[in-house]
Design a binder for these strands. Structure first.
Length: 460
RNA sequence: GGCCUGAUGGCGGAGUGGUGACGCAGCGGACUGCAAAUCCGUCCACCCCGGUUCGAUUCCGGGUCAGGCCUCCA
């Protein structure tokens, strides 16, 4: 199986061949840092982290460049700063750090680059100037607007025409626009707002221009893959293509467009404006990051995923099962690093078919438990470890997983009780053994007797 | 109104023109002092109506329902 991805623009799955296999480029729209990111924001972070890991596996760690931006210019940031009486940088610094820690806890590798909008204002104004020079942008009422009618391919990504947009317009259109779909590249600052000097007056950039400017600066055009949430297809990515191509006389912008589906709750999109969100931060207090990652990858990335407590519980149980295998059949040093099994790679290379990849993990677990020889069991366990690690799982020892953050005192207490119980069992004092087990159960500890010894785990 | 997705068993979620993935839960059994973990077995599905076909859950048409974008949005 060769690597293929579904391309939103082509509307089909296509073989993925990077422009330069020594320099594969991936850009993903990150978050606007004005408050805690919700678990829906984590889906693209995790999905494209998986893509990043897969590309590194295929093309080599040093041959993949991954940029995930941080938007730190925005109305909501301004509002938050105003509400709290602080500088916008206080807001953006705080929530950018929280976001980075949160997604790291979900097993996401640090991207190669995390460019910030405020660090690329000159590149944005240069791009806007290029658009004006080429007749693709115009100034009106203090704004600079992109002239959508100057770009014949406008609407191709989202499958709509300028006429459709006229017909479907639901909102008041600013009268200074030549066409309702024209979008802002630069807007004048209101009093008190952060602003930057530019050839078009003091102001700040529109939302779309930042990604185009940062892509060009950090990765160079065209990039191989541009990713983001499904809701960014229109207008954000449509506008990126328009400005990105027009600034360079129609040159290619991104070779593949990938979009992840939404998280839903009661079948409804999880969204801050609806208010039905769960923050990553809060969820991490309730469940291990790996379990949340498992949950996010349990459905195919383009499908909607219903988010609920049962999903998290099931994900944790799935990892319990696999960590149990790793604990019982610890991969021998000589068996590690093991090859990632073909079946797992096949699944991932087929447009990140994670449900199939996860099913293959269970198949490896079954082999590890049932193979006739210990060598085969250990080999299967090593493969499981390799496959899981490729996907960003098994970042801790089984012991650490099952004892889930227990402190030394607690562990010592549990070990002492288990030792007492072992003595009771040896003298066949079953009543005492069961009493001690009940005591452990009360501590939320589950005891697992086996031929080779006793282990324990915290119950979910 | 325009554009666009999707509807699979108790739950999550793949896939396929004909032997009904995988996981969780349930049930029966093995193992165990008893459990747990593990193993073996097992119950349960393809929204509705037409069409194509020897045969459709899978292809085509229509319908119903749900959801998304068109405004900030992962």
């Amino acid at each position: 199986m060769s690597l293929s991805f579904y391309d939103t623009l082509a509307r089909e799955k296509r073989a993925f061949v990077p422009a330069d296999p020594d320099r594969v480029t991936l850009y993903v729209c990150g978050v606007t840092v004005y408050s805690y990111a919700h678990i829906g924001n984590a889906r693209p972070a995790v999905v494209f982290d998986l893509a990043f890991r897969l590309l590194r596996h295929i093309f080599g760690e040093d041959h993949v460049l991954y940029a995930r931006n941080i938007t730190d210019v925005d109305d909501k940031i301004n509002q938050a700063a105003l509400d709290q009486g602080v500088d916008i940088s206080a807001i953006t610094t705080k929530f950018a750090e929280i976001y980075q820690a949160d997604v790291a806890a979900l097993g996401c590798l640090p991207p190669t680059f995390e460019p910030r909008a405020t660090a690329h204002i000159p590149q944005m104004t240069a791009m806007i100037s290029a658009l004006i020079e080429r007749g693709h942008a115009y100034q009106a009422d203090g704004h600079v607007l992109f002239d959508t009618q100057s770009f014949p391919d406008y609407g191709k990504l989202s499958g709509r025409s300028l006429d459709d947009l006229l017909a479907g317009a639901r909102v008041e259109v600013a009268d200074y626009k030549r066409h309702p779909a024209d979008f802002v590249l630069w807007k004048p600052a209101k009093p008190g707002e952060p602003s930057w000097q530019s050839p078009f007056g003091a102001g700040r950039p529109g939302w779309h221009i930042e990604c185009s400017a940062m892509i060009e600066t950090v990765l160079g055009l065209p990039i191989d893959i541009h990713g983001g949430g499904h809701d960014l297809i229109f207008p954000h990515h449509e506008n990126e293509i328009a400005q990105g191509r027009c600034a360079h006389d129609g040159a290619d912008y991104a070779r593949v467009w990938m979009h992840n589906g939404f998280l839903t709750q009661s079948a409804e999109k999880m969204s801050k404006s609806i208010g039905n969100i769960r923050t990553i931060h809060d969820l991490l207090a309730e469940a291990p990051g790996e379990a949340l990652r498992w949950a996010l990858l349990s459905a195919h990335y383009r499908a909607p995923l219903e988010w609920n407590p049962e999903l998290i519980a099931q994900s944790k149980r799935a990892l319990d099962r696999l960590y149990g295998v790793l604990q019982r059949w610890p991969a021998a040093p000589e068996a590690w690093p093991a090859q990632v099994p073909e079946a797992v790679l096949d699944a991932l290379e087929d447009d990140l078919a994670t449900p199939r990849a996860l099913a293959e993990l269970f198949a490896l677990a079954r082999i590890a438990e049932t193979a006739p020889t210990e060598a085969e069991k250990l080999a299967a366990s090593a493969s499981l470890l390799a496959a899981g690690r490729l996907m960003g799982f098994f970042n801790q020892t089984p012991l650490a997983w099952f004892s889930g953050g227990s402190d030394a005192d607690f562990t010592a207490k549990v070990e002492a009780l288990i030792s007492e119980r072992a003595q009771a069992r040896q003298s066949k004092n079953w009543a005492e053994a069961d009493r001690i087990r009940a005591e452990l159960t009360a501590l939320n500890v589950e005891v697992l007797d086996s031929a080779t010894g006793v282990s324990w785990r915290l119950k979910g």
